[in-house]
Design a protein around this nucleic acid. Structure first.
Lengths: 143, 143
DNA sequence: GATGCAGTTGCAAGTTTTTGCAGTTGCATT
DNA sequence: AATGCAACTGCAAAAACTTGCAACTGCATC
């Protein structure tokens, strides 16, 4: 019984094939508390299953993101990072351009935007993770 | 007198060097109405000034984005695209995952989020362009 | 209009991410 | 438990993007 069984069930229900490679990628991301790059995921996958290819890891990261199971974090000047989307703890990141600090932003803070998109444009926001640039309090004061 | 003189002034005021290469990249993006990939920008730059390198184009696109003069658009499964940021017409894009349609979203629609970030986290949003995935009205109805 | 130098460039090589394709495999059906 | 087939994989190669470095150049100052 692992902490991402829920995710696996979700995949099955969607009629999606669960290959060992895919399960392993999901497993690595869900058992890491940090934000892993594709390469770091690959290294951990590779340690357990050396024949798995890097391209398979990339394909599954894209796939799992599209399924809404993992979030992608793009920080200026670094490769993309991935993290588990844990239900009840959906969040986004505000990243300070000054000091690099990262603030977790509650998903609820987007409720207004979500509503505006729906009523104004008929657009249903389906957003897993957002990275928002700006300045934290300290850096804004210093400027 | 070209339509991006304002942008150039903005650079000068910020004490930034205006090289011919940089001016050319800015010029190409500002004189195109569409959203250009780095490669398309490079091709147009190259046509006018064949010795300019692709890496210089990339470096300037990043630079101009950081200066807030151009916006970057990341669509699923395609290379990044760039467009001019025209003052008075700041906007973002909502992209339908179903049909690919792109809806322009007014910057003002983010006002609520901006305020929430500031009061809740002391974070000053400094956002040039956002790409928001979701479903347009037609695709949401069809689903 | 000469000088100085930090910011910028071209080049070559690197890293990151995607793709085409032929062979393999999960899983629904029988 | 055998079958069928679309989804998936590994491999190799390509495309997209970044970086190190030595040479060059805007532009501020004299």
């Amino acid at each position: 019984m692992t902490c991402h069984d829920h995710a696996i069930d979700q995949l099955r229900d969607a009629g999606i094939r669960l290959t060992p490679q895919r399960a392993l990628v999901l497993d690595v991301v869900y058992h890491s508390d940090g934000h892993l790059t594709a390469d770091e995921v690959y290294e951990q996958v590779h340690a357990q299953s050396p024949q798995v290819d890097l391209s398979t890891v990339y394909r599954n990261l894209v796939f799992l993101r599209q399924q809404g199971l993992i979030g992608e974090l793009r920080l200026e000047g670094q490769p993309a990072r991935f993290e588990a989307v844990r239900s009840g703890h959906e969040h986004h990141h505000a990243v300070c351009s000054g000091c690099g600090r990262m603030i977790e932003v509650e998903h609820d803070d987007l409720a207004g935007l979500e509503a505006a998109l729906l009523t104004k444009y008929g657009f249903r926001l389906a957003l897993v993770h957002l990275t928002l640039p700006g300045l934290c309090h300290e850096c804004a004061s210093a400027a």
